[in-house]
Simulated assay, not measured.
Amino acid sequence: MGVRIAIVDDEATVCKRLTSVLEVEGFETEAFQTAKPFLDRMGRRAFDVVFLDLSLPDMNGMQVLSQLKAGCEDVEIIIITGQGTIESAV
């Protein structure tokens, strides 16, 4: 079984491009444009890596990050955003 990667970003273009690049490299990917469906799926079948946008329509990315760290300590999380600040980076 390969590495499973989730892409959680409200922009369809970002999801599509990341999915394309990662699948060419042999990774199993699944994209989500909101946090709740992603968290539901994560509860049923965990991902190894998550690309997580900080700005989502239904939940703040930092809230999602907190939930992931509380329940899924082994997952690697990569924060992505087009609207970052120094404060959010730290």
Rank of each mutant, 00 (worst) to 15 (best):
T85D: 01
F47R: 00
C72Q: 12
V75H: 00
R41K: 13
F47V: 01
S55E: 13
G82H: 03
K16T: 04
I7N: 01
Q83C: 07
V24Q: 08
G26S: 04
V14S: 02
M59A: 06
I79M: 06
F27H: 03
F32G: 00
F27W: 08
E25D: 10
A12E: 14
G82D: 07
I7P: 00
I5F: 04
L54I: 15
R41Y: 01
E76P: 01
E28T: 11
I78D: 13
M1C: 02
T85G: 07
I7E: 07
L52Y: 14
R41L: 04
D9N: 09
I79D: 08
M1R: 04
S88Q: 12
D10C: 05
T34F: 02
C72I: 09
I77A: 00
L18A: 02
M42N: 07
R4T: 10
T19K: 13
E11K: 02
S66W: 15
P37F: 13
I78G: 00
T13G: 00
A46L: 11
T13W: 05
I7M: 01
T81Q: 06
R17I: 10
E23Y: 10
L52F: 15
C72K: 14
T81C: 07
Q67E: 14
S88Y: 05
F27K: 00
F51M: 05
I77E: 15
T13C: 01
L52M: 08
E87N: 12
V64D: 00
D48Q: 10
F27M: 02
L22E: 15
A31L: 08
Q63S: 15
L18N: 03
M59F: 02
G2R: 00
V49I: 15
E87T: 06
G2S: 13
A89F: 05
D74E: 14
Q83S: 07
I78W: 09
V3I: 12
D9V: 00
G84I: 10
T13V: 04
K69W: 11
E87H: 02
V14L: 09
A89T: 11
L39I: 15
S66F: 12
V90M: 15
F51W: 14
M62E: 11
R45T: 09
L22C: 05
G71R: 11
F27Q: 03
K69F: 04
L22M: 14
V49L: 10
D40T: 13
N60M: 09
V90R: 06
P57I: 00
T81K: 01
